[in-house]
Amino acid sequence: MRADRLLSLLLLLQNRGRMTAPELAAELEVSVRTVYRDVEALGASGIPVHADRGPAGGFRLVDGYRTRLTGLTDVQAGSLFLAGAPGPARDLGLGADLTAAQLKLEAALPAELADRARRIQQRFHLDAPAWFRDADPVPHLAQIAEAVWEQRTLKTHYRRWSGAVHRVLWPLGLVLKGGIWYLVARAAEAEGVAVAVATEVEGEAEGPPAAPGNAEGAVRTYRVGRFLAVDTPGERFERPEGFELAAYWEESARRLEAATRRQTAFVRLSPRARRLLPMWFGAAGVRALATAGPPDAEGWVGVELAVESGSVAVGDLLRLGAEAEVLGPPELRRALADTVAELAGRYR
């Protein structure tokens, strides 16, 4: 581990020139004292590191010195696929490998391309989590990621809406959606642990529902933040032939929306509600606006909006407040009227 850090320090000085001890400490995620010890170690090994004192001082390599130790390890090469998402890379335990890989790649590039890469990094940033929502604590994520990579089974203790369950899983892949980590896995029959057969929906239990058909051994989605305990990865397993993570996720997300938004509401929207609809209803809101007719004299329009059933639809539509009016179906309009009347009585 220290050898990797020393190489990263060397490549930082080679790629960026003079850097102060606090700057190096921030890049390497170590203390300033550790930086001083590492610089001494580089000097003792024959690397010509020069220390400039004073307010504009720092550490730099003697002019003309360049290292050729820029080959990527297999882990560093794999981590480059997460180059646009440093936060998730750290969550997966690949932060140091990603930093080292980027430094090696930068050192191997011609000066013009290396400068262009730095400008892109300075000007574009990916922030995966959604606004106004804290990310799940995921203390077991690195351990789960190791099992995914090594194709090893996991004995898990998982919190569902109906209670905690013990499961043995074949972990097939990890997905980051809106700042939330999900594990895609197949439940396995092991040591008397039964395979779950219930269809579960994200928000109540796990994630997008399993594909229709025989549920035994079905591939399912689990929210990583709901794992209460995960044992050390166990025996190796064989991945299902032909399984593709991206294709599975796209299809399961489609099934989730189809399973939850089964009802169509006919809604009048004010100009302000039209701006809010995509924010509150996402893709369903965008599609609803495409059905809008011409505005009336007050600027209101009618749309067809896919909503969930029962109290969920009532709660979602009430977020629009007085900027919307539900015209149908009649039972949904009555449910909203009853809820509003109850609220009015409570606050009267």
Results as ranks from 00 to 15, higher is better:
2 R>I: 09
20 T>L: 07
21 A>N: 08
21 A>C: 06
23 E>D: 14
23 E>K: 08
24 L>Q: 03
29 E>Y: 06
30 V>E: 03
31 S>G: 11
33 R>S: 13
35 V>A: 09
48 P>W: 00
48 P>V: 00
50 H>A: 13
53 R>L: 13
54 G>P: 07
54 G>Q: 06
54 G>K: 05
59 F>H: 13
61 L>R: 01
62 V>D: 13
64 G>R: 04
68 R>Q: 14
73 T>C: 00
74 D>S: 14
84 G>S: 14
86 P>V: 01
92 L>W: 07
92 L>Q: 06
100 A>I: 02
104 K>E: 04
106 E>I: 01
112 E>T: 04
113 L>W: 10
118 R>Q: 14
120 I>L: 15
123 R>W: 04
132 F>A: 15
136 D>I: 08
145 A>T: 08
159 R>F: 07
160 R>F: 12
162 S>A: 14
162 S>I: 09
171 P>L: 09
174 L>C: 06
179 G>P: 02
181 W>E: 05
181 W>C: 05
182 Y>I: 11
187 A>E: 15
189 E>M: 11
190 A>S: 15
193 V>F: 05
199 T>L: 12
200 E>D: 14
200 E>N: 12
201 V>P: 00
201 V>T: 15
208 P>I: 01
210 A>F: 07
215 A>M: 05
224 V>I: 04
227 F>M: 11
230 V>M: 13
235 E>A: 15
238 E>N: 10
240 P>Y: 02
241 E>R: 13
242 G>A: 02
245 L>N: 06
248 Y>P: 01
253 A>L: 13
254 R>L: 12
263 Q>E: 15
268 R>Y: 02
276 L>N: 10
276 L>H: 12
277 L>E: 00
279 M>C: 07
284 A>W: 02
285 G>L: 08
289 L>N: 01
295 P>K: 04
303 V>E: 06
304 E>F: 02
309 S>N: 11
312 V>E: 13
313 A>H: 03
316 D>N: 15
316 D>Y: 09
317 L>R: 08
321 G>W: 07
321 G>M: 11
324 A>L: 09
324 A>K: 05
335 A>G: 03
343 L>W: 10
344 A>T: 10
346 R>Y: 13
347 Y>D: 11
